[in-house]
């Protein structure tokens, strides 16, 4: 009985894979890119990737708006779009990209071991990380903010947690969780951490916590998806420039990615990517940040 079950599952899966393969027609935006049309300096990473006609990009699979594995099993979001655009500039088509999940804890490691060529994963540029890898970008500047219920006026910013009676939720091992700890009077009775922000929002809805904190763009996504239920409390209180992680010392590649980003900023593809994904729920379009070529 178990065997028939497994066979059945396998059959269904095989069938559905077939269907998915037939239905894949979203290669529209990579139209003008003939793979041979690009040429790069011999021996560079760009040439290697272009020749191999494949690239491995790390992103998050559980970050709505930036990198979230969709119902079709493919990641989608702003980070994913940026990754696709860079691949495009390398002359690599969308379907030749291998997406690898890179949760916060393993990003540096995956880059160091060359398991991924690039990491585009809401990856805040900071000096500690620069010791192990290099950053291109930033391609977006986020800032940490606080999400509260729409009718809540008691929380106006991180300082509201100093009194010790407000509870806040964030994600395990993330920078926002570490940042907010400074403002807490008593960590044990004020802080909750889960593995994804959706769970924090559930806890906020049900009233176990008073606030959720992380980068503003992620919070904006939740505000938009739950019309009228939530709002941001006050201004961003940190700056989180998102960069693209790549192997340390590969300066030619870093320059290439930086140049690519600047091109994307100028020709409107960056803005389109933003509006299609994370910016879908936000009225104003942000101005592109300045590339930091350190």
């Amino acid at each position: 009985m178990r065997i028939t079950r497994m066979v059945a599952v396998a059959a269904v899966a095989a069938l559905s894979l077939g269907i998915a393969a037939c239905g894949g027609d979203d290669g529209g935006d990579s139209g003008d890119t003939g793979s041979g049309s690009k040429s790069f300096e011999a021996g560079s990473t760009m040439e290697k990737l272009n020749k191999a006609q494949k690239i491995t990009i790390g992103t998050k699979f559980d970050q709505p708006g930036f990198g979230l594995k969709g119902l079709d099993g493919k990641p989608a979001g702003f980070d994913v779009e940026i990754g696709k655009l860079i691949a495009d500039e390398l002359g690599i088509a969308d379907d030749k990209i291998t997406w690898v999940e890179t949760p916060s804890a393993v990003r540096e490691e995956k880059i160091e071991k060359a398991e991924v060529d690039l990491v585009v994963a809401t990856y805040t540029i900071n000096d500690k990380r620069k010791e192990r890898i290099d950053f291109a970008g930033p391609y977006y500047e986020a800032g940490q903010n606080i999400l509260v219920k729409a009718d809540d006026t008691s929380i106006t910013g991180p300082d509201s947690f100093k009194a010790g009676d407000k509870k806040v939720c964030s994600v395990q091992g993330s920078t926002p969780a570490t940042n907010i700890e400074k403002y807490l009077a008593n960590k044990a009775s004020q802080l909750v951490v889960f593995d994804v922000y959706q769970k924090c929002v559930d806890a906020l809805t049900n009233g176990q916590v008073n606030a959720v904190t992380t980068d503003n763009v992620i919070l904006l996504g939740f505000i938009a998806r739950n019309e009228g239920k939530f709002k941001l409390a006050g201004e961003n209180f940190t700056k989180e420039p998102y960069g693209i992680g790549l192997k340390k010392g590969d300066n030619a590649f870093r320059t290439f990615v930086n140049d690519t980003l600047e091109t994307l900023f100028k020709d409107g593809r960056w803005e389109k990517a933003w509006k299609d994904t994370a910016g879908k729920y936000v009225d104003e379009t942000p101005t592109p940040p300045t590339i930091n070529r350190y």
Partner: peptide, 18 residues
């Protein structure tokens, strides 16, 4: 992993990942 902050496993996770 389910919201309890500061027990052995959460503490360990915090030490290694954050």
């Amino acid at each position: 992993f389910f919201g309890l902050v500061g027990d052995l496993s959460n503490g360990a996770q915090n030490l290694t990942s954050a």
